[in-house]
Nucleic acid binder design. Structure first.
Lengths: 234, 234
DNA sequence: GCATGTGAATAGATTCACAGCG
DNA sequence: CGCTGTGAATCTATTCACATGC
């Protein structure tokens, strides 16, 4: 469904666990449910129970978790705390990632104020906009800087993840600037296809595409007399 | 990757074209590029060119389009206008879909003001919030109503698509209310797993999951010396 | 006994490579 | 000749079913 991660050299000293892309996309889901279980002081969970909580199939949970190693106990289940830390480590959430948001329109504001960043692993270190009227404004306690300052800021505090929340027309040039500033992961909210060097990870979130997909299934359902369900955005 | 649409009875009068889920997710992508081509007065496009514009592989484009029927001309390519209307029809964008947004925090505001709704096929017919302080407010020219009014509003103007932009803790109950009000498609922005009856289509957009996936690949890249790229959210 | 972990079976998506047609 | 349309090959993901081990 997406470009698969490619490894430069297949032969390495140790076994480089290759975690399937589909599995990676589900780990955050498991993590969230595990946090909820931990908050409720549940210490052990079966694949069945976890699967229910996440809305997936139990066999899938077991296979996914088996890619991380064997952290379950037969006849018992998985230790919630152990799984939490294994998945967190696997996802790289034990370190924290510096985030910059470019574009502070409605969406940029919403993203900047999003709770759950600081929560675990992510920290906003920069807000940028090209509109002089917005520069200097305080959003979520952070001062908005001009996008031209991106290189300066990035030189001081390296930025790991860049979030693009600008109009489609300028998305590509913002991406280019982010890449130039050393950003290695980009999350694009602009409804435009952007390209980045191969070494940079790129994901996109596109509202209108989601709506159109829903439209397709709605129509399909209306046409036949029958039900249809879809889950998404893995 | 997601639950596949299931058809209730496989045997039907005519050949019910079964369009693969992965293809459905790409059609909106093609559509966007086709609009751009049309705007630039380009009348014909090859699978190769379209693939470039969308960042996919040419064979994939051809196979995807072949699921809609044969609308290309060998040796020439596809007619932009014809493809536009075929894909629009297939996605159900020739009718327009009534949308309601529940939750008018930062994100809800951003969504309500999102340009590209009215653009094609989608029209916001209701904004709802549970906070009395927000009720009555005018957002994007529409008055916010209390979520308790949902049934009334839906009875007058049927709502096809519900967008959930409320905190995770209340996402499920909002979903339940939407379903009860007759909504058949839901787009969930809350970071929570919600369940709906099988007849209802559900997709989700989850910022923190996207970030965690990027984190995974960033860490992976840091660990090895090598590059990794991912594309997402189909 | 019971739930994990995993080979084997199945399903789905992508890519290849080329026949077929304008 | 050039590009579509598509079978066949490949790769990826899901699901089944059961041996394994606590």
């Amino acid at each position: 469904m997406a470009d698969a991660p490619r490894s430069g050299d297949e032969e390495r000293t140790a076994v480089v666990r290759r975690i399937p892309e589909a599995t990676v996309a589900r780990l955050p889901l498991y993590l969230r449910s595990l946090f909820e279980l931990a908050a409720a002081d549940v210490t052990t969970v079966s694949s069945e129970r976890l699967a229910d909580l996440c809305g997936v199939n139990a066999a899938k949970v077991r296979k996914d978790l088996s890619h991380l190693g064997s952290y379950g106990t037969r006849g018992v289940g998985y230790d919630v705390g152990v799984l939490l830390s294994q998945i967190s480590r696997e996802l790289g959430l034990t370190q924290d990632w510096a985030i910059a948001i470019v574009g502070l329109g409605n969406l940029g504001h919403a993203l900047a104020n999003y709770r759950g960043f600081g929560a675990r692993g992510f920290r906003i270190v920069g807000l940028f906009d090209a509109d002089p009227a917005r520069v200097g404004e305080l959003v979520a306690g952070i001062r908005v800087r001009h996008v031209d300052d991106l290189p300066h800021v990035a030189a001081e505090t390296p930025i790991a993840i860049g979030i693009i929340a600008v109009p489609a027309a300028v998305a590509q040039q913002v991406a280019d600037r982010l890449v130039e500033a050393g950003v290695v992961s980009i999350l694009n909210f602009a409804p435009a296809i952007i390209t980045v060097p191969e070494r940079v990870s790129l994901r996109k979130v596109d509202l209108s595409i989601e709506l159109q997909i829903l439209s397709f299934y709605s129509q399909r359902r209306a046409a036949k007399g029958d039900a249809t369900a879809t889950e998404a955005t893995a």
